[in-house]
Structures are given as C-alpha cells and as structure tokens.
C-alpha cells in the first residue's frame, strides 16, 4: 500500500483538528481538536519513520503520547476548575486575561 495515503490522512486529520479548535466554543470539544492534531502528527511521524526506515520518528511518537497524556490531566483539571468557577464550558467566556 502507498505510504503517501497515510500522509494525506494525517494532513486531513490535522486540518479537522485545527478547524475544531478554531471554530468550536465548547472547551471539551476544543480539547479534543487539540488531541486530534497531536495524533495526526503522530501518524505523520510514524509514516515518515517507515518511509526512511529510521526509528527516530517512532521515538518521537512515544514522547508525544506521554506528554499528551500528562497534558490531558492538566488540561482537564483546568477545564474543570474554570467550569466550576464560571458555570460555563465556553472558551469565549474565559476571556478575562487581557488589557
């Protein structure tokens, strides 16, 4: 099977993730968009590793997975506390940090 198909898939997934982040207001959904972009990157890295016959890409993927898991913990905690404080999960409602 042609490896470029995986690249296209990864690009597509990344674009979907980015659009989700940019367009949706619900924090959880935005967060999922972020995760989707991370995994699109993972897919691209795996594919390139396969293409070049090198393990470097796969090592990066492992790192990304670990960091993503940690990030989820922190991110969800933040979302939870914002929700508790403001009774809303909309990213546009958390807009106080500005001049």
């Amino acid at each position: 099977m042609n490896l470029t198909a995986y690249i296209y898939l990864a690009t597509l997934l990344f674009a979907i993730g980015a659009l989700v982040v940019l367009l949706r207001r619900n924090t959880i959904i935005v967060f999922m968009g972020v995760e989707l972009m991370l995994n699109a990157c993972n897919l691209a890295l795996i594919t390139f590793a396969r293409m070049h016959g090198s393990l470097d890409g796969q090592v990066y993927v492992l790192f990304v997975m670990v960091v993503a898991a940690a990030e989820v913990v922190v991110g969800l905690a933040i979302i939870m506390s914002i929700y508790r404080a403001r009774r809303s999960a909309s990213v546009d409602d958390a807009n106080l940090l500005k001049l």
């Binding site: 982040v21 207001r25 990213v91 958390a94 500005k98």
Partner: peptide, 14 residues
C-alpha cells in the same frame, strides 16, 4: 490584539 479570546490566539498562531 490581546482580546482574551483563546480562539483568536490560536488563529494567530496558525
């Protein structure tokens, strides 16, 4: 430019 909307920031980054 700093309006507090996270999505605007994300768009800028993109």
């Amino acid at each position: 430019a700093q309006n507090g909307f996270v999505r605007t920031y994300a768009l800028t980054m993109l």
